[in-house]
Amino acid sequence: MAHGNFTRVTEFILTGVSERPDLQIPLFFVFLVICGLTVTGNLSIITLTSVDSRPQTPMYFFLRHLAVVNLGNSTVIAPKMLINFLVRTRGFLVFTVAEVLMLAVMAYDRHVAICNPLLYRAVVSQRICLLLVSLTYLYGFCTSVVTSSSVFSLTYCSSNVINHFYCDTVPLLTLSCSDTSVPEAAIFISGSTNLVFSIITVVASYFNIVLSILKIHSSDRRKKAFSTCASHMTAVSVFYGTLLFMYLQPQTYHSVGADKMASVFCTLVIPMLNPMIYSLRNNDVKAALKMFIRNTCCSLNHSSFKSL
């Protein structure tokens, strides 16, 4: 669109993970497998924690919504990314913020369960669980609307090629010919506030958890207490480690390739890994999966027998 002496950009083109033509088809199949595992794993967690009677505690309620967030994050980005591998013209934020806060909520849940087990059901009641999850989604949505509105209110009049595989706000700002100080400040304040608040909540929760566990005299009880936190600690370490790598590197060490790979890991690989982390280290989830498979097989066999 012409505007004065320049052309206003109204459409953006994503360069994708790699611009090498010989890598497009192999990368398509790699990320197709990742996307398939992500959808299968997270849908399995959602199904198992919904239909089985055992994993119905607040921890599994939050795990179910973490799976919803992971599923949303990957399915928002992956389909467009897969299309970009196959076509030459290549013309998210809610779920990322929600995942940051959901992990903090889950850390608080583990803190109450181990430090105040007798009050667990009263403190982390169904009403509180619904409130925490609702606030997480609402805050993620509001943050996304404010940040996206400030970014897309700018004028873009130079290149329309974004050197990324999804429309992230930071690479987009580099294409603007307007003053970007306001959206940059909004992104920085929002991102740093979300990350610092979440990390403080997680660190404070696990500090108290470790102190409480060290006071337990029985080695078996200590081992059991640690095992209830192991899956969440692993997921938190992987997720925050990736975010800190992306945002706390000195600017001189930043490279487009490294940032893209970190983004791939954060938005696609971690949502695929989380169901594995929680299911492989959790006896309730494994038991629910075995029961679900057994019931499904029995139902199929019963249906086949009736048809005969």
Rank of each mutant, 00 (worst) to 15 (best):
T38E: 04
L32G: 04
L32D: 00
R8V: 05
F6I: 04
F6G: 00
I46V: 11
L23A: 06
T40F: 13
G41L: 13
T15N: 06
T49V: 07
V9I: 15
R8E: 08
R8P: 01
T47S: 14
Q24R: 13
T47M: 13
T15W: 08
T10I: 13
T47K: 15
L23W: 08
L27C: 06
E11C: 09
R20F: 10
T40L: 11
T47F: 15
L37T: 02
L23T: 05
E11F: 11
V39Q: 09
R8Q: 10
S50V: 02
S44L: 11
R20C: 09
F28M: 04
T10V: 15
N42I: 11
R8C: 00
E11Q: 11
N42W: 15
T40N: 06
T15M: 05
E19W: 07
C35I: 01
I46N: 06
T38A: 09
R8N: 06
S44K: 08
P21T: 02
D22N: 06
F28N: 01
T38F: 06
D22S: 07
R8T: 05
F31V: 03
C35Y: 03
S44C: 11
L27Y: 10
V33N: 05
L43H: 11
I45S: 01
T10C: 14
E11Y: 12
V17P: 04
F6V: 13
F31N: 04
L43S: 14
